[in-house]
Computed example of a mutant assay.
Amino acid sequence: MDSYPLLNLFWTMLWFFLWIMWLFLLFKIVSDIFRDDDLSGWGKAGWLLVALLLPFIGVLVYVIVRGKSMGQRDIRQAQARNAAFKAYVREAAGTEKGGHVDDLAKLAELKDRGALTDEEYQRAKTKLLV
C-alpha cells in the first residue's frame, strides 16, 4: 500500500493540473492569434510557430507581450456579441425605435387625450398593423 505515498500523489496531481492549465492557455492563445485582425498573415504564422515549436517559452512570451491586448479583444468580442443579442431581441420583440409597439402606444395616448376620435384611432391602428 505504501508503494505510492500521499505526497507523490499530490505532486502528480499538481503537475497534471498545471499541464491541463497550460493546454487551455495554449488553445486560448492559438484562437487569439487567428482572431486578431491587427496581425498580418506573417505575424500570425510567426506567433503560431513560436507557440507550437517552443511551447512553454512561446506561450509565456505571448502572454507577456500581447496579454493586455488579448484581454481587450475578449472584451470587444463579448460586447459585440451582447449588442448583437440585444438587437436580435429588440427585433424579435418588435421594440425597435419607431416600431409598432411604440407607435400604438403613441396612438393610444393621443386618443386618451382626446386628440383623435375613435374613428381616426381605428383607421391609424389598422394602417399600422397592416
Score class of each variant (00 low, 15 high):
42 W>I: 06
38 D>T: 15
9 L>G: 05
29 I>L: 11
5 P>C: 00
14 L>E: 03
28 K>L: 14
56 F>N: 02
60 L>F: 12
72 Q>G: 06
65 V>K: 10
41 G>I: 05
35 R>S: 15
16 F>M: 12
35 R>Y: 10
4 Y>P: 00
74 D>Y: 13
1 M>Y: 00
67 G>T: 08
47 W>L: 14
28 K>P: 01
29 I>F: 07
45 A>L: 14
51 A>G: 05
49 L>K: 05
4 Y>D: 04
25 L>C: 12
15 W>H: 07
19 W>G: 13
27 F>Q: 13
70 M>F: 09
76 R>I: 05
54 L>D: 00
67 G>V: 08
36 D>N: 15
52 L>V: 15
22 W>S: 13
25 L>A: 15
24 F>M: 09
6 L>S: 07
8 N>H: 00
43 G>W: 04
38 D>N: 13
61 V>M: 11
23 L>P: 00
1 M>N: 01
6 L>H: 02
77 Q>N: 11
75 I>Q: 13
77 Q>W: 11
5 P>D: 00
77 Q>V: 06
20 I>H: 03
60 L>S: 12
42 W>Y: 04
54 L>S: 07
51 A>Y: 00
17 F>K: 04
23 L>K: 08
63 V>M: 12
14 L>F: 09
9 L>T: 08
16 F>Y: 06
46 G>K: 15
61 V>D: 01
66 R>A: 10
8 N>T: 00
16 F>Q: 10
12 T>W: 00
9 L>Y: 01
30 V>C: 11
54 L>F: 13
41 G>V: 05
62 Y>P: 01
23 L>I: 08
10 F>S: 02
39 L>S: 10
54 L>P: 02
73 R>Y: 10
